[in-house]
């Protein structure tokens, strides 16, 4: 059963709040103001992931993955395109974009930045579920989209929720498209939580 438009709006609001939390933390770390576009939310199948990406299938992407379990279970995958990731780490570490030092640092630093983004959103999402969630440690890897689809998504027909947001830091000339993919099971429980959250907010 596909998401209704009100469920999409609710999830957009929740993700937006999560991005807001993330921006608050990163603002502080970067000492610069982060601006965000309202995220786009879509429910798609794994087979159509590539259709929604602005980067090519073989481009190296920085990805951070977080598994979760509780009332619902699944994983959240965050993708940064290579140069955007490098620019963020460069702003945080002072290393120049394109240097080998920056590439060496990228893993540790991006695992942290990725965890900040995912944490912001998952904390926000967890708040709607009225139940304790358990989380794995965020894990960082550098892979292309083909690898990610093959490794992290079981079947092409598997449904997932895609959230894409654009963040930019004008002072530091950073413009990054951030993609989040939520693989959630069971989806009906998740949708039900969204409905309950919407009712609560409306009241």
């Amino acid at each position: 059963m596909p998401m209704t438009s009100s469920q999409i709006d609710t999830l957009r609001e929740i993700v937006n709040i999560g991005f807001g939390r993330m921006a608050g933390v990163l603002n502080n770390m970067l000492k610069a103001e982060i601006q965000l576009k309202v995220p786009i939310i879509k429910e798609i199948t794994a087979a159509r992931i590539a259709d929604y990406m602005t980067f090519s299938n073989d481009e190296d992407l920085s990805s951070v993955k977080l598994d979760f379990s509780g009332k619902i279970a699944g994983k959240t995958l965050l993708l940064f395109p290579g140069i955007g990731a490098q620019k963020i780490v460069s702003a945080l570490t002072g290393e120049k974009v394109g240097t080998r030092d920056l590439l060496a640092m990228q893993g540790g630093a991006l695992a942290e930045v990725g965890s900040i983004v995912i944490n912001g959103i998952m904390t926000s999402l967890g708040g709607t579920l009225n139940g304790r969630m358990r989380y794995s440690l965020p894990s960082y890897s550098k892979r292309n989209l083909d690898d990610i689809i093959e490794t992290d998504f079981g079947t092409p027909s598997e449904s997932l929720i895609l959230a894409q947001a654009f963040l930019w830091v004008e002072q530091l000339d950073i413009k990054v498209e951030v993609t989040l993919m939520f693989l959630i099971s069971p989806l009906d429980v998740f949708y039900d939580s969204l409905n309950k959250y919407l009712k609560k907010v409306m009241v």
């Binding site: 933390v25 770390m29 540790g108 900040i116 944490n119 998952m122 967890g126 969630m133």
Partner: peptide, 19 residues
């Protein structure tokens, strides 16, 4: 800010030595 997330039962936070 990040500890508040943890005290709310949020996901793990990483403080990398590089940052």
């Amino acid at each position: 800010v990040r500890f508040q997330n943890i005290f709310s039962g949020g996901p793990p936070a990483i403080f990398s030595s590089q940052l």
